[in-house]
């Protein structure tokens, strides 16, 4: 039997299947350490208002961050975090493409503030506009396979369903739905994005056949972010290997692993 192959991301095939967010670290040095120790090749980045330097003397935060990313030598995946409308998301993506010099965009259109659940209707519309404009869209979506199909119709070649609400650390809220999504889109690159809290959550997603894990808070807010990043990298690799090795099916009743044939009769 042929082993399941891992898939690429718009032609890019990373060795590391951990995509790491860059926010919330105690310091830029800790972020850099986490990236280096885990072997991460893709990091997510964002855009925020830049203060006018001539006015306040406080400008330049973004310039320093951009220098750090350059030193790390990683590929960037800009996001549209915080966008609630199609127009906001599209304009943010256009600005991100110019600043970061990449057609990649992690497309978020948020529909609800308590759960940060994606507005999938707006997401599909924005994905179509951006794909038509040459973007390579990584849509932050749910495990809904009908929505997934619409996103592929809109031009996406990658889908990024949530594991759980952003920053919640709950792991995979709906493993059944994620498994169904994997089976429904066998040839599409799938990334679990958001809600991961522990390396075991990430391993579970990889065992289901997901192609990468995108997370931020679980590493950035850990007591030792670099150590946690390394733990995630190991768990993701273990889960990936397990998927390629084709795990056994769970069953309800016991099945003896030690052969019964030839056992001494002692009663």
């Amino acid at each position: 039997m042929q082993k399941p192959q891992m898939k690429d991301f718009y032609g890019f095939e990373p060795q590391s299947r951990l995509f790491l967010g860059t926010a919330q670290y105690p310091s830029p040095a800790v972020l850099a350490d986490a990236v280096r120790r885990s072997g991460v090749e893709v990091v997510t980045v964002s855009l925020r208002r830049e203060a006018a330097q001539g006015l306040t003397g406080e400008g330049g935060a973004g310039q320093a961050f951009w220098s750090l990313i350059g030193e790390l030598g990683v590929r960037v995946l800009p996001n549209t975090a915080g966008c609630h409308t199609v127009k906001e998301a599209v304009t943010t993506a256009q600005m991100a493409r110019e600043v970061f010099g990449t057609d990649w965009i992690k497309l978020e259109v948020i529909g609800e503030d308590d759960t940060l659940q994606p507005d999938v209707v707006g997401l599909i519309e924005a994905a179509r506009i951006l794909s038509d404009d040459g973007f390579q869209v990584f849509p932050y979506t749910t495990e809904d396979i009908v929505v997934g199909g619409r996103l592929l119709d809109a031009g996406c070649e990658v889908l990024m369903p949530w594991g759980a609400p952003i920053g919640s650390g709950r792991g995979l809220n709906n493993p059944y739905g994620l498994r169904t999504m994997r089976q429904h889109f066998p040839d599409i690159s799938l990334v679990v994005d958001a809600g991961i809290g522990l390396p075991s959550h990430a391993a579970q997603a990889m065992e289901l056949g997901y192609d990468a894990i995108l997370l931020n808070t679980a590493v950035a807010k850990a007591g030792d972010p670099a150590l946690m990043a390394e733990a995630f990298a190991m768990a993701i690799e273990a889960g990936r290997q397990a998927y390629r090795a084709q795990p056994i099916e769970a069953r309800d009743m016991a099945a003896p692993s030690t052969p019964v044939m030839g056992k001494a009769f002692l009663s």
Binding site: T22, S46, A61, Q63, N216, T217
Partner: peptide, 10 residues
Amino acid sequence: IEVVAPMQGG
């Protein structure tokens, strides 16, 4: 006028 620059993101 909106002026934005690279920033940390998840």
